[in-house]
């Protein structure tokens, strides 16, 4: 993984790192991918990917309202808010 790829990956994951940390991060990732790459030695032909071990049928609920307004609780918990909203630094589109 080169510098540009790592920078892109860090951005996709929204994790900041200084460029001087890049070699160390690359080393750690490479190490793990060496472990993962053992997968390439397996014969997986014809195997259907398995997403969930139980292979259940999904449940659904009735379309009934069951919610109490917890606005104040939610806003109190947030790092920054006014009386009605969560606040963040200005988003420039």
């Amino acid at each position: 993984m080169d510098k540009i790829e790592l920078k892109n990956l860090l951005f996709l994951a929204r994790i900041h790192a200084e460029e001087r940390e890049y070699p160390e991060i690359t080393k750690k990732l490479t190490n793990t991918f060496n472990l993962i790459d053992e997968m390439n030695n397996l014969d997986l032909q014809g195997l259907e990917p398995l997403n969930n071990p139980l292979e259940l049928n999904n449940v659904s609920r009735e379309d009934e309202e069951k919610n109490r307004n917890q606005k104040d609780k939610f806003l109190d918990q947030s790092p920054e808010s006014d009386d009605d909203h969560f606040m963040v630094p200005k988003i420039i589109e």
Binding site: M39, L44, L47, E48, L50
Partner: peptide, 8 residues
């Protein structure tokens, strides 16, 4: 591939 291993 990992999900296939899981199936296996």
């Amino acid at each position: 591939k990992a999900q296939q291993v899981r199936r296996m």
